[in-house]
């Protein structure tokens, strides 16, 4: 899933400036799971903002809404009838949701209420860790199912580097060296021979080289 983290409330207040009618817009998917942008967080942010404006003796209307998804036309259309009541939206969906909302409601300012961080997994409640950078050319088959692109600090494809020590990465003793994990997994799979093979030059054109990417699937297009 896409993992996001809350933005400091001071930053959101600054974004909002002099707006007086504000809709806080959440999303029921990834950001709900990582407890940054779901219905519960919409409520918390809305209350915090109400308190702040009350203290400032400013009459600011704050409404709440949480959509199933903000990255689909279908759900975003649900607020079309009421968007005109607001002079700003704070979207606490991921960056995709913020942008899709802004594209759809072109003349309403849409501000991000979270920092979108990465694609990752819930290791335990309150702990999410990165697993994928969407490089567009997945090499997990060769690396024992562990991604060096997202999990190795240097993104080395023929690791480990010289900084790997006791299975930990040189950037931080808390960080497990991705290549240590790859080696262990390849051994467990009885595929250690694969490790000896040099990884071919990676084609980054499916990553960000070459501009924004798209996936076109004619087989499912209407």
């Amino acid at each position: 899933m896409i993992v996001a983290d809350k933005k400091p409330i001071e930053e959101i207040i600054e974004e909002l400036g002099a707006h007086e009618k504000i809709l806080i817009l959440g999303c029921n998917e990834c950001v709900t799971v990582c407890e940054a942008g779901g219905k519960k967080e919409v409520g918390i942010l809305a209350s915090a903002l109400r308190m702040y404006f009350l203290n400032q003796e400013r009459d600011v209307k704050i409404d709440e809404e949480t959509l199933q998804r903000q990255c689909d036309h279908e759900y975003l259309e649900e607020i079309r009838d009421k968007v005109d009541q607001y002079d700003a939206i704070v979207s606490i969906a991921c960056g995709v949701g913020v942008q899709f909302t802004a594209e759809k409601y072109f003349s309403t300012p849409v501000y991000p209420g979270v920092n979108t961080c990465f694609m990752g997994a819930t290791e335990e409640r309150g702990l999410w860790t990165e697993r994928c950078q969407g490089c567009g050319q997945c090499i997990l088959a060769r690396t024992g199912g562990i991604c060096p692109v997202s999990r190795c600090a240097k993104r080395v494809l023929n690791g480990p580097c010289g900084g790997s020590s006791d299975g930990k990465c040189e950037i931080n003793k808390e960080v497990i060296c991705a290549w240590q994990l790859i080696v262990e997994r390849l051994k467990a799979l009885d595929r250690f021979d694969d490790y000896e093979e040099l990884s071919p030059l990676k084609d980054w054109s499916t990553d960000r080289a070459g501009g924004p990417r798209k996936v076109v699937r004619e087989d499912v297009q209407p």
Partner: peptide, 13 residues
Amino acid sequence: EDPGLGDHHQARG
């Protein structure tokens, strides 16, 4: 210019 326009179009900018 973006690497995509050159002769090493698989490179990362």
